[in-house]
Design a protein around this nucleic acid. Structure first.
Lengths: 135, 135
DNA sequence: ACACATTTTGCAACATTGTTGCAAATGAAA
DNA sequence: TTTCATTTGCAACAATGTTGCAAAATGTGT
């Protein structure tokens, strides 16, 4: 599905910034930070526009946010778009990249009485295969 | 174990800021933000001192950081101090508090070949028991 | 109790990240 | 093409986090 179609489907206006973000995120096999997305984007947008575009896309669950420790906010296409189950994220301590582990569904937890579960986030930290090779 | 003992054990100097942070975090049944800790602390410390104290305590794994979405950094006593297994965290969307679910150990995942796992973080989002009651 | 070496503190200045209000520009629909 | 709501870019601001450096506090040995 193309970026333009996704936006139409969610009744969002097709602006070049939004389309650009979706395209970049969609074509990447790992989660990207705001700066990484900006670098790969043709247009030169204001930071405010960027934030507002991210906010809109996250609110409509087109992309999702992943946070690693502090100061590392990354984005990836949401499950509603990829049509995959809720998956775990992997953060490589060496190359500092985040990958969506599509093949690893999030395990569910049994909460104490009275609690209700809406969403579960799993971040596995370690060393990825390609960094491991180089050791 | 008292804050002073913990610091001695890790060969860190006993400063009132460090002791204060440990005491506040230790006596709380939920994870606290920097501001919440500062409010509950007697001394009036510079923000820089605060950050550096947090950094030191996190580096030595006395407290640990939990991040909810963006902009919400919270701290709790680390497992090395509490001597509990690695546990899941629960974030209540209503009252916006984070609880360490000591009784819910983190489930392990099988990673693809070549990957190594060092640490797994689990954040369950939903509504907690007391907020549920008030509905 | 004192002096010493080292660590930590507080301050100032700065960097990064994110937000808000508003006028101008743009997109979609008639 | 005209209209109307949405989005953009700018400026100003707020929050969060970092760095360098002199002054203060800590722990150790005497």
């Amino acid at each position: 599905m193309k970026a333009a179609e996704i936006l139409n489907q969610y009744k969002l206006k097709r602006t070049s910034c939004r389309e650009g973000i979706i395209d970049v995120v969609k074509s990447s096999n790992q989660a990207l930070s705001e700066n990484q997305i900006r670098e790969r984007l043709a247009g030169n947008y204001d930071r405010t526009t960027f934030y507002r575009s991210f906010k809109t896309l996250v609110e409509h669950k087109i992309i999702h946010k992943i946070i690693v420790d502090n100061q590392f906010v990354k984005y990836a296409l949401d499950n509603t778009i990829t049509k995959k189950d809720n998956h775990a994220h992997f953060y490589c301590n060496e190359c500092q990249t985040v990958k969506c582990m599509d093949a690893i569904p999030v395990k569910q937890y049994h909460l104490p009485d009275g609690y209700s579960d809406e969403e579960t986030e799993v971040l596995i930290k370690g060393t990825c295969a390609s960094c491991k090779e180089q050791e």
